[in-house]
Amino acid sequence: MNDSKIVDLYLARSEDAVKETSLKYGARLRSAALKLGCDTGTAEECENDVYLRAWELIPPNEPREYLFAFLAKLLRSAAIDRLRRASAGKRSAEFTELTHELEECLAGNMSVDTEAEAKELGRMINAFLAAQPEEKRMLFIRRYWFFDSVDELSKRFGFSKSKVKTELFRMRGRLADYLRKEGYSL
């Protein structure tokens, strides 16, 4: 079933909406949750969270053209929330590593400790990414949105691992410059 028809089911408050969503995207969502560092049980919980949130958010949203992104965003949010609430020792190494990498973009006195701060920073990151060449933008999103490892990025983009690391390093540097020039401060 195509995405638009699935969204129609949500709008019609048909219970088949969740069933069709699960049929089409369930495996991808679980797979994404596992990549984000969840264990199998947590991944299933996150998936169910997604269906519940999608049911609550459609309507008013109508993500006919970007249903997967819409669901993936819900999943990412649910998964990160669970990981953040986990004790430091239980957080995935990937979660910690990616946080550290992004911290490079912030000046020493900055921090992002609330949802409001995250939203403000996100708005600026979004503007920064929009101005980047497509391939670099995709690389950045795959790394920090989808949590792709360097190895996975290397295969996906056809770069050597060192090139992936170099590109990401440069992107973070440019983002840091951009945030500074735009007067970002928290």
């Binding site: 992104a69 990412r76 995250a118 990151i125 929009a130 999103i141 949105w145």
Partner: peptide
């Protein structure tokens, strides 16, 4: 920086959709 990674949630949906299957 507990919420640092969540800042990426603001990335444009279409960019995320594109990145989902992106292969250069």
């Amino acid at each position: 920086n507990d919420y640092l990674l969540e800042s990426l949630n603001s990335v444009d949906d279409r960019a995320v959709e594109q990145a989902g299957d992106y292969r250069p």
